[in-house]
C-alpha cells in the first residue's frame, strides 16, 4: 500500500485539558485505504486525542499539526473539519431533544453538499443505510439519541458516518457497550464504509472489535504517547498479556 497517498497526518500533537497535558506529542500517518487502531488502557489519552482532533471545546491542541488530504485542519472550526472530510464517532453521543434523526442528518448532509444541492435522494439514502445497520425505520422520526440505549446510539453514530461518507473516520470506543450481535452489525457497517479512498482510526481499549474490523496497523498509547506500533498481531498480544509488558518495555506508565 506504500504507493498510496497520505490521507491524514498528525505531527507532534500535544493536547491539554484544563491546563493538564494529556497528549504529549503524537505523530501518525494514515494512507488512503488503511485502518489504524490506537489501543491503550483507560486514561492513556486516546479519547482526548480524537476529541481534540474534532475540535471539542474542552480540549486544546497546544502544539503540533494535523493535515487531512494535505489541508491543515487545526485552524478550522469543527463544522469546517467535518465538511473537509473528518468524522468522529463519539464515545458518548449526546441527546438532542426536539431534533429528529432524519432532520439532523438532512441538515448535516445539506451542509456537506452545499445550500443549492439536490436533496431528493435523501430519503432513499437514509432508508437504505438504516436498513443496512438494522435500525428500525421509526428511528428516523425519533429525537436524536433521546432515550436511545447505548447500542442504539453507537449504531446511529455509524449511520451518520455512512450517510456523510467522510474521508477520514475516527471511531472512539465504538465497540463499548455493545452486545455481540450489535458488535457484528456495527463492524459490518464500518467494513461496508471502508474503501481504498478513505481511512479509519479505531480508538479502543479492547481487542474484540479488531476481530471484525481488521486493522493494518496497531499503535499502543501510554501516558499520552504512541509508544509502540505493529501489525494486527500486536493487538492479540495485548489481549493476552494486557498492557503491563509494554509499560515495562518502554519504562512508561499508562496514566498521563
Amino acid at each position: 500500500m506504500s504507493h498510496r497517498t497520505t490521507l491524514f497526518e498528525l505531527k507532534d500533537i500535544h493536547v491539554e485539558v484544563e491546563d493538564k497535558e494529556v497528549v504529549k506529542g503524537v505523530s501518525l500517518k494514515v494512507k488512503a485505504g488503511e485502518v489504524h487502531a490506537i489501543m491503550g488502557p483507560n486514561g492513556s489519552g486516546k479519547s482526548s486525542l480524537s476529541n481534540a482532533l474534532m475540535g471539542h471545546p474542552g480540549y486544546e491542541i497546544t502544539s503540533g499539526e494535523a493535515y487531512l488530504q494535505g489541508h491543515s485542519i487545526l485552524e478550522m472550526p469543527p463544522d469546517e473539519r467535518s465538511r473537509a472530510g473528518l468524522f468522529l464517532a463519539f464515545q458518548y453521543p449526546l441527546a438532542v431533544p426536539g431534533v429528529t434523526v432524519a432532520n439532523f442528518l438532512r441538515a448535516a448532509l445539506k451542509a456537506h453538499r452545499g445550500p443549492e444541492a439536490d436533496m431528493s435522494d435523501f430519503r432513499r439514502l437514509l432508508k437504505r443505510e438504516m436498513a443496512a445497520l438494522s435500525i428500525d425505520p421509526s428511528f428516523a422520526t425519533r429525537y436524536l439519541n433521546d432515550g436511545f440505549s447505548g447500542g442504539e446510539k453507537k449504531r446511529v453514530e455509524i449511520l451518520q458516518m455512512s450517510v456523510l461518507n467522510p474521508k477520514m473516520a475516527l471511531l472512539d470506543e465504538t465497540d463499548s457497550g455493545l452486545d455481540i450481535d450489535a458488535l457484528k452489525t456495527v463492524s459490518g457497517g464500518i467494513n461496508r464504509f471502508h474503501n481504498a479512498d478513505n481511512g479509519i482510526l479505531l480508538v479502543t481499549h479492547y481487542q474484540r472489535l479488531l476481530n471484525y474490523v481488521q486493522p493494518d496497523f496497531v499503535h499502543v498509547m501510554l501516558g499520552g504517547r504512541l509508544v509502540k506500533s505493529g501489525g494486527p498481531e500486536l493487538a492479540l498480544k495485548l489481549e493476552e498479556n494486557g498492557y503491563d509488558w509494554v509499560e515495562q518495555e518502554t519504562g512508561l506508565t499508562a496514566e498521563v
Partner: peptide, 21 residues
C-alpha cells in the same frame, strides 16, 4: 459541538437546538 462535528455551522446548530427545545 455535536451538530458542528457533522458539518452544521455554529449559527445553524444553535437555531436547530432552540427549534428542538
Amino acid at each position: 459541538h455535536y451538530l458542528q462535528s457533522r458539518g452544521i455551522e455554529h449559527r445553524e446548530a444553535v437555531r436547530m437546538i432552540v427549534a428542538g427545545f
